[in-house]
């Protein structure tokens, strides 16, 4: 026998790029993440031909799920045609032959950076969120080892203290995106830098959400039908972005998350952030029910409460 007999014929890349070992490892970790909602599972995180910090965590998850029959939607900031979304989509199809779509309801795998679509996702869909920083306690301690210990002990006093300090100083919570949320009553997660508008969509959702940070090598999950509550004191409710009165300049729709577009005369115009949804509205296509209805009511009645300014 010679060495060549032991070698395999040259094949430039495995199916879906990652080799069998890398995929198996990731798949084992994904199962753990689903079994322990909100717990950050450490993983090896292989290098991909996309820069680190550009969605490699989400991409590894997508590549370990994708197959020829998959239908993939990729968005960045809500938009399908963002250059970064286009690049990731191009790579996924190049390596898997999967079909792509801009329609949230048609996607079997939806990889997203910073948004959850407006239309209510359904059972059997996988939402893959790209995560730059998986650690909700980073503001409390920059040290991962210390943060892990706090999670182990469910010692979340310091993050509550941060929120309380915000109330004392500003009379409201000032956290923007990545609003810390409690999953299944046990682990606090960063829901990735989705706007607060999207955070409640994780609560008792019909779909599976996988969150993956490639650079930080952690992945975690929010399984379907799992309780997810943004942190709030009982007398000062959590608030989503106030976009009341903002009307989309192309579709005329309200009460969906908008991009604010500064105008030369000092005013602003607004457009739907969810480009797939906008596309459907423009083409008069069939849209599905949305998490917030046209009056701005959230689909879990009573989950979001009207704003209160504390008197401190």
């Amino acid at each position: 026998m010679i060495l060549q007999d032991l070698a395999q014929p040259r094949q430039d890349y495995s199916y879906a790029f990652m080799d069998a070992y890398a995929k198996r490892e990731l798949r084992r970790r994904i199962l753990k993440a689903i079994a322990i909602p909100g717990y950050q599972v450490p993983y090896a995180s292989r290098e991909l031909p996309i820069a680190r910090g550009w969605g490699t965590g989400g991409l590894q998850v997508t590549l370990s799920l994708v197959g020829p029959e998959s239908v993939v939607k990729v968005i960045d900031q809500g938009a399908d045609d963002s250059v970064n979304a286009a690049n990731l989509r191009r790579f996924i199809t190049r390596m898997s032959g999967a079909e792509t779509t801009t329609d949230t309801l048609k996607a079997t795998i939806l990889q997203s950076r910073h948004r959850i679509p407006e239309e209510i996702m359904t059972e059997g869909q996988a939402l893959v969120l790209q995560v730059p920083d998986p650690e909700p306690l980073r503001g409390v301690t920059a040290d991962m080892s210390k943060a892990s210990q706090l999670h182990a002990d469910a010692d979340y006093g310091q993050i509550w203290l941060l929120l309380y300090e915000q109330l004392v100083r500003y009379r409201q919570y000032i956290q923007g995106a990545s609003y810390p949320s409690l999953v299944n009553g046990r682990y606090i997660i960063s829901p990735s830098p989705i706007p607060r508008w999207d955070t409640p969509k994780l609560h008792q959702s019909a779909h599976l959400t996988l969150l993956s940070a490639g650079r930080e090598k952690r992945l975690y999950a929010v399984p379907p039908y799992t309780a997810v509550y943004p942190l709030e004191f009982s007398d000062v409710p959590f608030q989503v972005e106030d976009q009341r009165g903002w009307v989309c300049k192309t579709t005329g729709i309200q009460n969906k998350f908008m991009n604010e577009l500064p105008q030369e005369d000092g005013t602003a115009q607004y457009e739907l952030s969810d480009s797939g949804y906008a596309e459907k509205l423009m083409n008069r296509g069939k849209t599905a029910p949305t998490y917030y209805d046209d009056e701005g009511n959230f689909y879990h009645a009573g989950y979001l409460r009207p704003p209160v300014l504390p008197t401190l």
């Binding site: 199916y15 879906a16 079994a35 799920l65 199809t93």
Partner: peptide
């Protein structure tokens, strides 16, 4: 560019994993 082949081994491993993943999710 044609995607790398979806081999039988890959199909088996992936489809088994998907069954495990959805079974754990629901």
């Amino acid at each position: 560019m044609t995607p790398p082949p979806y081999t039988r081994a890959e199909a088996e491993a992936r489809e088994t994993f998907l069954a495990l993943m959805w079974a754990l999710s629901y």
